[in-house]
């Protein structure tokens, strides 16, 4: 099992007011899952993804990543885990504007021990994988929204993570590009065997997911497998 979530709760404190964002979620994610988390704005999707991605901590409950309790990790261990095992795709792409496509994809590799040749080889693989070979030396401001998100996907996959977390990856894209990005993610899930968890509030995108968790007011109201029909 890739992820085991047990009684997860998260509260936000606004002055004296406590706002419960997650109210006790329990579920598991298997390796190779292609999971969509859906719900209205404010239901806790981003909070859940941040906790699963180790960039936020729960108020109560536990999360196990490949059997390791995330609450036992130090900050540096969390950073190492994110570096080795988790890839992130952001709604706003979050690419470094001065770097080229290849250099943006290469960024996570700079923290590892791979030499220049090895890094170059891996970057070339990813660039081909996301069909951006002819744009490798272009900067993000020279790409369309869909192309930028594909760069972000490649960056998320460059270290061969077990899990890719995407928070509203298509929110800033038109429907055509959104579909292309989701198809890309699905293809990579199939080919690379990487688990994907992505959040969305767009019901049209749901057809690409093989599993759906629906949140409402911080609680799971639906957990369905085999929900998508656009994937083979």
């Amino acid at each position: 099992m890739l992820l085991q979530v047990h009684a997860l709760e998260k509260d936000y404190h606004l002055g004296k007011t406590i706002i419960p964002a997650l109210r006790g979620l329990s579920f598991n994610i298997a390796e190779g899952d292609f999971l969509s988390i859906m719900g209205p704005s404010g239901c806790g999707k981003t909070t859940l993804l941040n906790i699963l991605g180790c960039i936020d901590k729960p108020s109560r409950g536990t999360v196990y990543f490949k059997g390791v309790d995330l609450s036992t990790l130090s900050e540096n261990q969390e950073a190492d885990l994110r570096h080795r095992e988790i890839g992130f795709i952001f709604q706003s792409f979050n690419l470094v504007p001065v770097l080229t496509v290849a250099e943006n994809i290469e960024l996570p590799l700079l923290l590892g021990k791979a030499g220049k040749k090895e890094r170059r080889k891996r970057v070339d693989e990813l660039v081909r994988l996301v069909d951006l070979s002819e744009f490798a030396v272009h900067r993000p401001d020279e790409l369309s929204g869909g192309q930028r998100q594909r760069v972000a996907i490649a960056r998320a996959l460059v270290n061969r993570p077990s899990l890719v977390i995407a928070d509203e990856p298509t929110a800033n894209l038109d429907s055509e590009n959104a579909r292309m990005v989701l198809e890309e993610m699905a293809k990579l899930n199939r080919q690379e065997g990487v688990s994907f968890i992505f959040s969305t509030h767009n019901p049209e995108i749901l057809e690409y997911a093989r599993r759906l968790i629906r949140l409402k007011d911080g609680l799971i109201v639906e957990d369905v497998t085999g929900a998508g029909h656009a994937l083979p």
């Binding site: 991605g53 960039i55 900050e75 540096n76 950073a79 190492d80 994110r82 570096h83 080795r84 890839g87 992130f88 952001f90 706003s92 979050n94 470094v96 960024l107 996570p108 923290l111 960056r155 998320a156 270290n159």
Partner: peptide, 16 residues
Amino acid sequence: LPEYGTLRAIGFRRRH
């Protein structure tokens, strides 16, 4: 800051 946040999310430590 968003750039730094992204770098930390992908594994950069504070000291980096």
